[in-house]
């Protein structure tokens, strides 16, 4: 016990405080971004469909997310009578938390990363594979058939697309020779990986759509057949957590795309006017671009049928990425990079 108390030193306290501050520096803006992503989605889709979108709350509807948040917080939390209560309440957090902890390894600029670990890519894959538990748990704990079906669908979908996502990442690792995300960004100084590995970029974009259960792969939430899927029984803050988790995941995946394929914080061209802009702005711009693709796709494409979705994942992407992996490895060997 004494040894435990001995740990309470100014040094340790400072260390913890510093890390906590850094974590807050990442998560608070992230939560803000999540809130405004919802607004952006409604606005963008509104414009695409020749509507105005929300414009009542505040100037140009800018206070809409806050109004939404207040509404959700003040709603009553309902737990179904037959639900497995503990699991039911943990589930939303299980969706939200992985989307947040993954940010630990994302580099925002040169040296601007919370944990500069060697296996960043693996860490991202590991954390992104956790999100499926929240969905499965909520579907099971609700003890209701539509959420259950939604959960089963989404779990199968996420696991399937993780495979092709992992394989696309492997070809990136092969090209950069490192699993450290900062190193991967620096390796793209000459050329963004989306150019030599363009097919992988496309596969990756499609995979992240499926991985985040977004349109056109939003079958787990299909309103028409599943009345909103795995979170049908949720309301109030637990529902808000699912919602936040989904959007946080979208931002995370966009950040991954930016880091792995679009040169992270690097400017598009290493020349004077571009280099004046700070790296973090470039990074944010790239994330915003990928997020725009998310919204664009949602406004444009109809929903996939489930068997087509599975077919695409296992019979098209998996062989394709495997072949591409071999091609990349051979190319790297022939170019003498390995």
């Amino acid at each position: 016990m004494e040894a435990l108390f001995a740990l309470v030193t100014a040094e340790n306290a400072l260390l913890i405080a510093k890390n906590l501050a850094l974590i807050l520096c990442i998560t608070l803006p992230l939560l803000g971004a999540v809130a405004y992503l919802t607004l952006a989605e409604r606005k963008v889709i509104g414009w695409m469909q020749l509507r105005v979108g929300p414009n009542r709350v505040g100037p140009y509807g800018l206070l809409q997310p806050i109004a939404d948040a207040v509404k959700l917080i003040f709603k009553e939390t309902i737990i179904p009578a037959d639900a497995s209560k503990v699991v039911f309440m943990i589930a939303p957090a299980m969706v939200m938390v992985p989307a947040l902890i993954a940010w630990a390894v994302i580099p925002f600029g040169e040296g601007m990363v919370l944990a500069d670990i060697n296996l960043g890519v693996l860490y991202l894959l590991a954390t992104s594979s956790l999100g499926v538990y929240g969905v499965l748990m909520s579907g099971w704990a609700s003890n209701s058939k539509y959420p259950f079906l939604g959960a089963v669908r989404s779990a199968a979908q996420m696991v399937s697309y993780e495979v092709s996502m992992g394989l696309t990442l492997l070809s990136i690792i092969l090209m950069s020779g490192s699993m450290n995300l900062s190193d991967i960004v620096m390796a793209q100084k000459g050329m963004w990986y989306m150019i030599p590995a363009f097919p992988m970029f496309v596969v990756f974009i499609i995979s992240i759509l499926a991985e985040t259960n977004r349109a056109p792969f939003d079958l787990p939430e299909g309103e028409a057949e599943l009345v909103a899927g795995f979170h049908a029984e949720y309301g109030s803050m637990p529902f808000a957590l699912f919602f936040l988790g989904e959007y946080a995941n979208m931002i995370l995946m966009s950040a991954m795309t930016a880091v792995l394929f679009m040169g992270g914080w690097l400017p598009p061209v290493d020349m004077a006017p571009f280099t004046w802009v700070p790296g973090i702005v470039w990074f944010a711009a790239k994330i915003a671009f990928v997020l725009f693709i998310f919204l664009w796709v949602r406004a444009t494409l109809p929903r996939y049928r489930y068997d087509q979705l599975m077919r695409l994942g296992w019979k098209v992407f998996l062989p394709f990425t495997l072949i591409w992996l071999v091609l990349t490895a051979s190319a790297m060997h022939l170019l003498g990079k390995v």
């Binding site: 894959l125 590991a126 594979s129 956790l130 538990y133 259950f148 779990a155 993780e162």
Partner: peptide, 20 residues
């Protein structure tokens, strides 16, 4: 990380699937 990815991310999901 492999433990998380393989066991937690894939194998346990299959467990849950079967059980569910």
């Amino acid at each position: 990380l492999l433990l998380v990815m393989v066991y937690v991310g894939a194998i346990a999901v299959m467990f849950l699937f079967v059980l569910m």
